[in-house]
């Protein structure tokens, strides 16, 4: 015996029940989740800004300077620093990052009178170095260059692993 609501083949004709509507709404909601990611992925990548590019160049400068210093003195490892300016600030109470001293022959850092265009281009940036001892006598250096763009604080970072000498064993000379 056939149910009177069901037609001869398949789906019920006419309107749907509330349960079926909720089921379809549920499926529609589920289908929106991958759609959201499709739309998000289809956004073109943001172009690198001038500030970001300059920050990357500055971070590269710091890492290369660390490498050159380590070449000159292999036992020397860079130390951790706080966020420091990279040119002399008008207030003068903040010390310029050691990686930007000397800069263009200025031992205490670049001042506005030395090269105004370069000074004002570098003034928005700060430099911070984090270091960590790792296993296998490796030393990790992370260079952060901070700046502010469109009212938001941003940071570019580059990292590098350095090798360091294992500590010398202390020999006890017995009687």
């Amino acid at each position: 015996m056939r149910c009177p609501d069901l037609p001869a083949r398949g789906w019920p004709r006419g309107g749907t029940s509330l349960f079926e509507l909720l089921l379809v709404a549920c499926l529609l909601s589920l289908s929106l989740a991958p759609l959201f990611y499709v739309v998000k992925l289809s956004r073109p990548p943001e172009r690198e800004s001038e500030m970001e590019f300059t920050a990357t160049l500055l971070a590269h400068h710091v890492l290369e300077k660390i490498l050159a210093r380590q070449h000159a003195s292999p036992d020397t490892l860079p130390s951790m620093t706080t966020e420091e300016p990279i040119v002399v600030t008008p207030e003068g109470f903040r010390v310029v990052s050691e990686y930007f001293r000397p800069l263009l022959g200025k031992d205490l850092g670049l001042e506005e009178v030395d090269n105004p265009k370069l000074y004002w281009a570098l003034k928005p940036f700060t430099c911070q170095v984090d270091t960590y001892y790792l296993d296998d006598y490796l030393y990790k250096v992370i260079v952060y260059i901070g700046y502010e763009e469109a009212g938001r604080k941003k940071r570019v970072f580059l990292e590098r692993l350095l090798a360091h000498q294992p500590p010398q064993p202390i020999l006890e000379i017995g009687p």
Partner: peptide, 11 residues
């Protein structure tokens, strides 16, 4: 004067 400068170093 509106273009960014280029400053970096190489070992």
């Amino acid at each position: 004067s509106f273009a960014p400068p280029f400053f970096t170093s190489f070992a």
